[in-house]
Design a protein around this nucleic acid. Structure first.
Length: 374
DNA sequence: AAGAGGAACAACCGCGGACGG
DNA sequence: TCCGTCCGCGGTTGTTCCTCT
């Protein structure tokens, strides 16, 4: 299959184009328009193959090409579209007026891809890179105050099943990247073990519940709501002490994770972003309402959303969100949901799973290095 | 100031679908 | 239906520019 490269004929020039060649090509296309690329070079007096002419024209000489740095909105659009379309550069370029597929592809490979990798996000799947999440690193921030024992390492090993919940792991990654001080606010002296232990309890409880006859998701959500209400746990530091029921354990873990999420979602003060005050109780209630299966379902949304072109999807789990002002947001968001605040947007929704998803949904704007655009 | 290494970008290569004879 | 050609796409390479030491 395939065909022989057209440029292998003798006499065909390769390499960078000269201004004279550019002028010839532009003049010819202005006069005759785009047409048969194979015969064009001969007619235009160019010692190039038609393919080379076409690429030069479409990627560089076309008058409607917008050159220069990609705007933040363009970049966000690219990431959003890439999470849906994959490496369909031409399809992505079709939604970015003035940008060529080649330009977008190059920009992706040289800028965005590296940035996502730095953030621990797989640029192919747009999911957290589980292979890079070294759970032992969870202990490092606390190492100064707490030297891990063998039992702690066993605890970490027990956490392995959490890989089923990549978004929780992303949360852990975010915790790591946000550093000990933010965590220390809720965990004394920056110790992560309480959080880890609670996550482990959540995992065990989820397994225990899975062995029971699983009620419908809505019923499960109600159970968690009730459990959350039964637990008096505004005290985030001590709420993990002696939970007496499976539901309490789950609720406790969920609550602590919510608290951690609240902290992890607060961008550093020097980003220039303004974040509305977080309604922590409301957030915790949402997390309590979202059972493990819902979270898993939410996580799986990433792959399902990339397999269909459901314009109603909110891209939950993709790690990418888009301001409502962007072209993609106009495409994908049928509601008037605002994404500029973390807590308020979801507190009023009746869909608990979606609310939890929104809770964990990271703002791309904050994840990206905004200073590039300052 | 000069060289090395990395980043950025333009251009090339190979493949495969579409289409007409 | 088959075959050859055109065209476009995605991946890769090569060159230039920039930064750091």
């Amino acid at each position: 299959m395939g065909r022989a490269p057209c440029c292998e004929k003798s006499g065909m020039k390769k390499g960078p184009w000269t201004p004279e060649e550019d002028e010839k090509l532009i003049a010819y296309i202005k006069k005759h328009g785009q047409g048969n690329w194979r015969t064009l070079p001969k007619n235009a007096g160019l010692a190039r193959c038609g393919k080379s002419c076409r690429l030069r024209w479409t990627n560089y000489l076309r008058p409607d090409i917008k050159r220069g740095r990609f705007s933040f909105e363009e970049e966000e659009t690219i990431i959003q579209l890439h999470s849906i379309l994959g490496n369909k550069w031409s399809a992505i370029a079709a939604r970015l007026p003035g940008r060529t597929d080649n330009e977008i592809k190059n920009y992706w490979n040289t800028h965005i891809r590296k940035r996502l990798l730095r953030m621990g996000i797989d640029p192919v799947t747009h999911a957290p890179r589980l292979d890079l999440l070294d759970l032992s690193a969870l202990l490092k921030p606390a190492a100064a105050a707490y030297y891990p024992t063998q039992a702690d390492l066993d605890t970490l090993r027990a956490l392995e099943p959490l890989a089923n919940y990549p978004d929780l792991l992303r949360l852990a990654s975010t915790l790591l990247s946000s550093g000990p001080p933010a965590i220390g606010d809720h965990h004394q002296n920056g110790q992560l073990l309480p959080w880890i232990l609670q996550a482990q309890m959540a995992q065990q409880a989820a397994a225990a519940m899975a062995q029971q006859v699983a009620p419908p998701p809505q019923q499960q959500a109600e159970q968690f709501m009730q459990a959350g209400a039964a637990c008096q746990m505004p005290d985030l530091v001590h709420m993990n002490s002696n939970p007496t029921t499976v539901q309490q354990q789950l609720a406790a873990a969920h609550q602590d994770m919510a608290a951690a999420a609240c902290h992890s979602m607060q961008p550093p003060n020097n980003t220039g972003y303004e974040v509305d005050s977080l309604d922590v109780p409301a957030l915790m209630q949402m997390v309590q309402a979202a059972d493990a299966s819902n979270l898993q379902q939410w996580s799986s949304t990433v792959t399902s959303s990339s397999n269909n072109n459901n314009n109603n999807n909110n891209n939950v789990g993709s790690g990418v969100s888009t301001p409502s002002s962007s072209p993609v947001a106009r495409l994908n968001h049928s509601t008037s949901t605002t994404t500029t605040t973390y807590g308020g947007a979801s507190a009023s929704t009746s869909n608990d799973a979606a609310a939890a998803a929104a809770l964990f949904n990271m703002q791309l704007s904050e994840l990206l290095d905004v200073s590039d655009y300052m």
